[in-house]
Nucleic acid binder design. Structure first.
Lengths: 111, 111
DNA sequence: TTGTTATGTATAAGAAACTTATGTATGTTT
DNA sequence: AAACATACATAAGTTTCTTATACATAACAA
């Protein structure tokens, strides 16, 4: 994903949140979207993305739908019902994580 | 560290920040401090902590000082000069990371 | 027309950071 | 006497990533 180790473990949450927001997306689209939102700071590599998508699918959190656009294959992913529930949990975990990290890093804001 | 994968990659930053703040700390003390600050949500395991401390030391970011208290060994760690510089960088990376994750998860706050 | 960039998916080898389990040792509480 | 807290350590295995490579089409530039 990037030089900073901090992003480790956050890829699944990012994917699921984007799918929750956009209904369905294909892999390449996800990489571009993430790059745009983070102003180029976070670049998801294919070697990380595709195995992650396949695992989320295998876990029953994503459904696939193949389309051909301009003679090129696209695999659109969307959340299953189970995936939607899981997304809620993971976003909640992310909020807790961010809160905890801020407590650790900026203890003066604890009150 | 914990069930949530999100904390992966953040341990070094946490350690260095706590050392920056407290001058010197020993391993067990770090685990207890983190548990207290996060209200029990984040539990650093020994299997993660000690190898991390040894690596930071090997990288020249930490110095060690052994003391015996109540007949028990304590290895106090503190930041080297190099470690202090690195801590500034890592905290900056953490701020960027948190900002990017919030942009991804809460796009309505982008403006 | 030929090379480079962009679009699009995929996997394999290796590195890094963790979990889980185990080990050693002392002090304190039940 | 047993359990828990303090204190450090490592080894085996898992997960998640990086890096490299591979295939294929379209668009653009030299």
């Amino acid at each position: 994903m990037k030089n900073s180790q901090l992003y480790k473990g956050s890829l699944n949450t990012i994917i699921m949140k984007l799918l929750e927001e956009n209904g369905k997306m294909y892999g390449y689209e996800i990489t571009q979207k993430v790059k745009a939102i983070t102003q180029g700071e976070l670049n998801i590599t294919e070697g990380a993305l595709y195995p992650a998508l396949h695992k989320l699918e295998a876990d029953g959190f994503l459904d696939v739908e193949i389309e051909k656009v301009d003679n090129r294959m696209r695999k659109y992913y969307k959340l299953t019902e189970s995936g939607e529930k899981e997304t809620v949990n993971r976003l909640s975990e992310l909020q807790d994580f961010i809160r905890n990290m801020q407590s650790l890093v900026n203890p003066k804001l604890e009150f």
